[in-house]
């Protein structure tokens, strides 16, 4: 059975979720075909081909950065090739494309999938629901093609088998330029204007940071991961950071994907403001600090040592 995946890329960069999608697809079958759309695709195609059995490349500038064009082109390819599954990341792009595609193809769809298997010719998925408190197994209804969107970070791409698949150019099946939905531009988050409620990664510091002079260390880590520095109330009280960085009942409620708490004990008023984070990591020298009971991961050590080391490691991994 064949699984088609979407190779997601943006502004010249291929997204990790592409390889995670290949990894997820491998759990189902023997053939993985990647679809790569847009312009300037040669480099990407090579990278993807390394792990895919085949890469279909459609070079068409009308598709670049246009999710509607993406949807239509993927739809045409799928209708023609009829793979058993089309799989992509449950990214912002996936949320725009996948459900629309499902309707176009008259396909069942499962999104935010964390586990996938085949059972008697039908696709079975595992999803985490109710704030991650419950897992559910669902079976997709019988169909020519099923659409799956996987959660990022769940299917490790670390041990992908090399395939060095063939790269095939396909004529753009896009009938006409999309007029109803025109891509205009990308907008970077406004530099300087820090909104801790909108950040995906928060580097949060508490009284344990000890001194205002240690704050640049936190800023450096935040820059390295592309996050923002937030804090507990004492840090604001000492005037080390402005009020709008305070997390908690009398500050801001935040729900980042990653919350790294450095030298924060985890007082009730603080925890109330951050418990909704997807992943909480606590770095605290006191193993008894209540923060460890809300965190999923912890390091029991001196933050002044861990923080710069972490910054270095992240920089290494990025380069």
């Amino acid at each position: 059975m064949t699984v088609y995946i979407l190779a997601e890329h943006r502004r010249g960069e291929l997204m990790d979720v592409t390889f995670e999608s290949i990894s997820a697809a491998r759990r189902l079958n023997d053939e993985v075909v990647a679809i790569l759309l847009g312009t300037d695709l040669a480099d990407h195609a090579e990278k993807v081909a390394k792990y895919a059995d085949k890469v279909l490349v459609v070079e068409d500038e009308r598709i670049e950065n246009n999710t509607e064009a993406y949807t239509q082109v993927i739809g045409e390819i799928i209708k023609k090739d009829k793979p058993k599954v089309f799989l992509m990341g449950n990214t912002s792009m996936g949320m725009d494309i996948a459900p629309a595609l499902a309707i176009d193809l008259d396909s069942p769809i499962a999104t935010d999938v964390v586990g996938i298997s085949e059972e008697g010719g039908r696709i079975k998925v595992n999803r985490s629901v109710y704030n991650g408190k419950v897992l559910s197994d669902l079976v997709l209804r019988e169909a020519e093609t099923s659409v799956i969107a996987i959660r990022s970070g769940e299917f490790s791409a670390a041990d992908l088998e090399e395939k060095n698949g063939e790269i095939t150019k396909v004529d753009s099946p896009l009938k006409e330029t999309i007029e109803n939905k025109k891509f205009l531009e990308f907008v970077e988050p406004v530099a300087g204007a820090v909104d801790i409620t909108q950040a995906d990664v928060l580097i949060s510091v508490g009284r344990g940071i000890k001194d205002k002079d240690n704050l640049p260390m936190a800023e450096e880590l935040a820059d390295a991961v592309g996050g923002v520095v937030s804090c507990s109330r004492p840090v604001v009280d000492y005037d080390w950071l402005p009020k709008d960085r305070q997390v908690g009942t009398s500050g801001k409620t935040v729900k980042p994907k990653f919350y790294l708490a450095f030298g924060i004990s985890g007082a009730f008023q603080h925890v109330a403001g951050m418990k909704g984070a997807t992943m909480i990591v606590a770095i605290n020298k006191d193993i008894k600090a209540p923060i460890f009971s809300v965190a999923q991961y912890g390091i029991v050590d001196d933050l002044l040592k861990v923080m710069p080391a972490l910054t270095e490691k992240i920089k290494e991994l990025k380069s």
Binding site: A224, V225, K257, V306, L310, K313
Partner: peptide
């Protein structure tokens, strides 16, 4: 510990 955490964060897509 920092190295392990960095890999974990990368794996989960923090950066």
């Amino acid at each position: 510990a920092a190295a392990k955490l960095a890999s974990l964060l990368k794996e989960k897509g923090a950066f």
